[in-house]
Design a protein around this nucleic acid. Structure first.
Lengths: 142, 142
DNA sequence: ATTACTGCAAAGCCTTTGCAAGCCC
DNA sequence: GGGCTTGCAAAGGCTTTGCAGTAAT
């Protein structure tokens, strides 16, 4: 086990879960891949971890909001996106699956309006834009 | 087969596919459910349609951009969202998994800004808020 | 009349479960 | 040391496939 752990590993521990080598291996694989991998890719990246433990780790990470399964155009299985702390906004290129992150969303006014309208208490949000990145625009258009 | 068909059914026909009773049944089930259903729910809603045909219809609808599979918080299987107009916005109650839809997002200015900033051509977006619905707020807070 | 499409059922694949052993705390 | 967690393998469940019959055009 490594001497230092990522902030996400710390969140695991803070939530009362043990920092096992299996969980750390899956977490490091996610962070290494910048987080839009399928379970199959993750299984390949962690050959020393049992399949069941990979799935159990993904389930745990999902419940702790460390990752989020999402459908990125092509695949028939979910891809797991790392959720950075705070805002989670991406732009997805539907041609090459590139993910661009951005921070400014200016959604706080809308969030407050929705809280009032529906009587909800909102804690966070996810915003994804879909389109084509510069490379793919060039490659697929006149 | 019904005498009149929805605009989506027309898109099917325009794309060169036959308007079969199986496809219409699945499409009507999607429209009736406002489109947050899993394949399992869809299978229940179309007892007269063979399972394989339901899956084949969903695959076809996905390729035609009539629906979009998405992971909404809870389920381990995708939920199929009807894509009416490019906007897909929900509020998810993280306690009871209730889903509330809303239409106004005012994200067009942001979308245009991001297109300029990253050189992308954006076609659509997904916005999800996470929180607690009125019932669950009452139930879980002092 | 053509041929795309359906339905059934079996095959296929990914994911989950059960349980003894192992490791974190 | 206690008990959460792992790993293996088998079970499980959803999805896909093959093929002959059926229906849309």
């Amino acid at each position: 086990m490594a001497a230092t752990h990522s902030a996400r590993a710390q969140r695991l521990r803070d939530a009362g879960y043990r920092l096992t080598s299996a969980r750390l291996a899956v977490l490091e694989a996610l962070e290494r891949s910048q987080g839009h991998v399928t379970s199959a890719e993750l299984l390949q990246m962690t050959p020393d971890v049992g399949r069941a433990s990979v799935y159990r780790a993904l389930d745990l990470f999902t419940r702790l909001a460390i990752v989020r399964p999402a459908w990125l155009q092509d695949s028939s299985t979910p891809r797991y996106l790392l959720l950075p702390d705070g805002h989670h906004h991406h732009i997805l290129c539907t041609a090459c699956d590139r993910v661009i992150d951005f921070d400014d969303c200016h959604l706080e006014p809308l969030q407050r309006e929705l809280e009032t309208r529906y009587g909800m208490r909102l804690r966070g949000h996810l915003l994804e834009f879909y389109g084509r990145c510069p490379d793919c625009v060039d490659r697929t258009e006149g």
